[in-house]
Write a protein that binds this DNA or RNA. Structure first.
Lengths: 246, 246
DNA sequence: CCCAGTTTTTGAACTCGTTCAAAAAACTTC
DNA sequence: GAAGTTTTTTGAACGAGTTCAAAAACTGGG
């Protein structure tokens, strides 16, 4: 279930082509048959390459899945841009962006659970806190930076600086809820979004109150420290994934 | 990786004995060799039974692992009781209980990541929100109920009612951090506990302020709803784990 | 004590992720 | 265009979780 090597870079046009073929086949199968039935063998078969060849380009099934992150984020981003251009209040922006996120992920609800399952392992390249996912995570947080940046709202600088990260965490929490949500049309998730966005908006106002400054400072210092701990900025992960294996 | 059937009930004294033997062997090996190296085959070998026999009593490796929850919770509870008897302030109680939790889990840090990995899957019997884990979760929350109940602190009833659940969630978050914590002696986790407990204490005071009543009410109503959604109270889980398989 | 029914136990098989040595194809350099 | 090197591709194997039919052990009633 774990991986040793990362996706091998292609050195040839032919290689590039094969890699893309495998990737597309995989994404297609994931969408059509879910995670369990999308075996590496099935992907290789359908793509018309050998099993070993798939592993040549993608060091593990996890690596193959990682492209899913990128793909859905890209979709979400494209869907969000018009909203960010149109809306100006933080609350309206956040509400729309969150709803669009769920819309984007909906086709993959079936296997999202498994995705987040492997994502919870600190050694997994899919872990959103780990190095391997850094580019995607960075992109993902960037969206919330944009969301906060252009919004007209009186927010203290210290809070404004951490807010994108906090909102990103919040959005991860919503996704976690969504995974467990079996209600029709994810009504509960959307309701949760409505409620929490309203609450967050109120809380941000509250936290912006000068009287709250000491508590806010303390809380933000903690958040900043946590963020640094959880998301180290360089090198040595992913290559030594096997601390206890073998 | 997933399971179909649950642990089979034993019908005989002999069966009971065999089941216990397998379980103890498994726990021992988990402690000594970590998760990866504790294969079902290795357990069966060491216990002197056949592989199929192990599967007769434990429908899957996950089921076998579930006993881990119970075991460590029991240890944590025993370690916490004296503290709850001794300390009276909410802050001191929470601080001690959280530190003891980490102490209790420490021997299993190596494989805790994998544990929480499978736990994140909504279909996994290890998922702390799922039915299968209900007894253990209930016990676990009960500890926080005791923690809150006897503490001398002026807390509004509505908040007091939800606080145990909120603290349980908080404690899950700390564990998640701890899993990712690679600092020496988990210094960062302990530091995080110190800081967050302090912060929580302040926040509880703040939230208890009459001025906060409207926001508090709204937030607590949300929490109550979430709790009900995430932790349904009966029936139909665990038996239909394979929504997409085959 | 024997027999039918249950429960326990076995062992072989299957699937799937992963690895690896070696063959095939592509590319470089002279 | 031939020799050598690198990249791509293959196919067979291994390890681990899981399943299952059937053998073995056990049980209670006649």
């Amino acid at each position: 279930m774990k991986s040793g090597k990362k996706s091998t870079a292609t050195k040839t046009a032919k290689g590039e082509q094969t890699k893309a073929l495998i990737l597309n086949t995989a994404l297609e199968m994931l969408h059509e048959r879910g995670y369990q039935n999308t075996t590496m063998r099935a992907i290789a078969d359908k793509a018309g390459v050998s099993l070993g060849n798939a592993y040549h380009y993608f060091g593990s099934k996890d690596h193959l899945i990682q492209s899913f992150y990128h793909s859905t984020h890209e979709n979400h981003l494209q869907a969000s841009l018009p909203v960010l251009r149109r809306e100006s209040s933080l609350k309206a922006r956040l509400l729309s962006v969150m709803r669009l996120k769920i819309d984007t992920l909906e086709p993959y609800h079936e296997f999202a659970g498994v995705l987040f399952q492997t994502a919870a392992d600190p050694h997994s390249p899919l872990n959103p806190f780990a190095h391997a996912a850094e580019p995607v995570r960075r992109d993902s947080i960037k969206l919330f930076e944009d969301l906060v940046a252009d919004s007209k709202a009186r927010i203290p600088d210290d809070l404004r600086a951490e807010l994108p990260y906090l909102l990103w965490l919040y959005h991860m929490g919503i996704i976690l809820f969504w995974i467990h949500d079996t209600s029709r049309k994810r009504a509960r998730t959307f309701r949760l979004i409505d409620q929490t966005v309203d609450l967050l908006d109120k809380l941000i106002s509250l936290a912006s109150n000068p009287l709250m400054r000491p508590v806010r400072k303390k809380a933000l210092a903690l958040v900043a420290e946590l963020r640094d701990d959880l998301t180290p900025s360089s090198s040595d992960d992913d290559n030594e994934a096997e601390s206890e294996a073998q």
